[in-house]
Every structure is written in C-alpha cells, then in structure tokens.
Design a protein around this nucleic acid. Structure first.
Lengths: 144, 144
DNA sequence: ATGGTAATGATAATTCGTTATCATTGTAAG
DNA sequence: CTTACAATGATAACGAATTATCATTACCAT
C-alpha cells in the first residue's frame, strides 16, 4: 500500500503543507480540491489515515470538535480555537514555569493547552457589525 | 418546565454533587441509580440539559471524548484525564504567569489546560500487573 | 382524595464523523 | 503499448452520542 503516487495524494499533502494550521478532513478536502478538483472525501479519509501511520501527520484533538490534523515535526506549540469560524490555529510559545499539583498517586504523561476566542478575521468582522460580545485582550492573554 | 420536584431530579443532582468530578451522562446515570434505581438515560439527558440552562451544571469538553458535566460555581481549576479508566478529575491550581503571544488581531476570551496520564487507582493497578508504560512524574508535572 | 398535566421510561430516530463496499480508473512495471 | 492491480469516488453502512416520540406515571394545586 501507498506505493503509487497519485495526483490525489500530492494534492492532499500540499493542502496540509500550505494551510500551516490543523485541518479537519472536510477543510483539507476544500484546500486539496484547489489542486485536484475531482478529489473525494473517502480518499481524504484514507490518505489521512495512511499519513498519520507514516508519521507525516499528527492528530490534533480539539475539545468538543472533530479531530484536526497537522504536519508532524513542528516545534512544541499549542492551539487556538476560533469560536467564530471554528478554525484552529497554532500558537507559538508555551505556558512555561508553573507545575499543577496532582493528587497523591496521579501520574501525568502529557498535557494540552487550548486558547479560545476570535481569530483576526472574525474579530474584525465582529467589531464592524456589532459592539457586543468582544471582551478579548490585545494579542496577549492572561493565563488564569 | 422544571416545576415539579421528582425523585429522579433529586437523584441526578445528588449524583453530580457527590461525585465531585465531571461525569458523562452514562457515569451520572450509574451514580444516580444508587439513589433511584428505575432512572432512565433519557431522563438523564433531559435533566442535564435543563441543569446546564439553569446554570447549575457546566459542560466540560475533553479532547477526543464525549462531554462531561460538573456542578457550576467552583474555583478556577483544570482537568486530568485518566487514560486507564477514562475518568476526568479536577486539578487544583493553575499554570500561572506566562502569556502566550497571539498573532495580530486575535482575541482570546478563555483557555483550557488538560493533563493526561493515570489516576492513582490505575497507576497502582498498572504498577502491580506490568512494569511498562508508566513514565509519569511524582504528583507534579512539568509544563512544557 | 382527585385530576390536569409535567415528567418519565423505553425505544425509535437522528446526527455526525468515519469506515466499508465495489465498480471503475489510472499508475507504472514489463 | 499492455496489463495487473493499487487507488479512487460515490454512496451505503456503521457506531456513538444525543434527541424525539408517545403511552404511562406521579407530582401537587385544588
């Protein structure tokens, strides 16, 4: 398997490379169809599965949303989920220092940090059309 | 609606109060049936929905899992998801200080921090029966 | 105690994301 | 150029979580 190099596979890899943010299968389909119009959703699922097994893609599980996928090998980072357009973005840096105290006997092996809010596009759109429901910061976020 | 005080409703509220951790509808059903045996799952879903609307319950969305619910009004905290038993626990304290830098125009309104690993029960069980797959810390967790 | 009706319980139906099926297509080895 | 068969595309099927349906139950104002 995965021995023939099809236009579909190329289009799918290009989609994830270009996007530079985690994509859902449906989102990836839209991006990839810009490269190869007749691409089907089944092929997208099949190839995502294969690319994850190959280690080329990594699943990104967002709370309350379906799984997104991003190209593997990036520096440690976290994710921002836009409530407006439902897109997920990468966030550079990390929530350094502090170490949460776990109850006795608990062993933690990994963690995830998510930010929620409005991306630049939705933030601007929101500001134009209504004055309410925008209580965000200004490029920075206080953590707790 | 929500004007009659049934044994089912009492049992459901007691279940969430006693558990002191976020419960899935199925988990909550098991707890509540200790108080009222003939409780059905449909009633659980109906009441969870009502209690969320009332603000008595809060949804807790865990990456890659179905939604859990916890009683509202608690101090700021985060969650620990046990890979062994799939239960979600509360974690006191927070990942203080640092502020991730967001791209221009992004506005963040909230955040979530998740820890993954093994709870005390699963950790002990794991240590007994096999020596592998436990690379956790000792009650503390380095963040990044 | 009685009765109107909110609430319940069993289960059918729905939704969403994903996987399976299978006839057809097109890559690439010979 | 052929040709085998990996891969695709359309869509059916699936599984899990949740919601809808509806006959029955039981809360509580009277």
């Amino acid at each position: 398997m995965e021995l023939r190099n099809t236009r579909q596979k190329q289009a799918i890899r290009e989609a994830f490379s270009e996007a530079a943010r985690p994509l859902s299968p449906e989102e990836a389909l839209a991006y990839a169809q810009a490269h190869y119009k007749r691409l089907g959703i089944a092929t997208m699922y099949r190839n995502i599965k294969a690319l994850v097994e190959d280690g080329w893609l990594l699943p990104v599980e967002v709370p309350g949303r379906s799984t997104r996928y991003e190209v593997a090998g990036k520096r440690h980072h976290h994710h921002f989920h836009c409530k407006g357009c439902d897109k997920v973005f990468e966030v550079e840096g990390c929530v350094a220092s502090s170490k949460p105290r776990l109850p006795r006997g608990f062993r933690s092996t990994s963690h995830e940090f998510y930010l929620f809010g409005l991306c630049s596009g939705c933030s601007a759109r929101n500001k134009q059309h209504s004055k309410i429901s925008d209580h965000g910061g200004r490029g920075e976020t206080s953590v707790c």
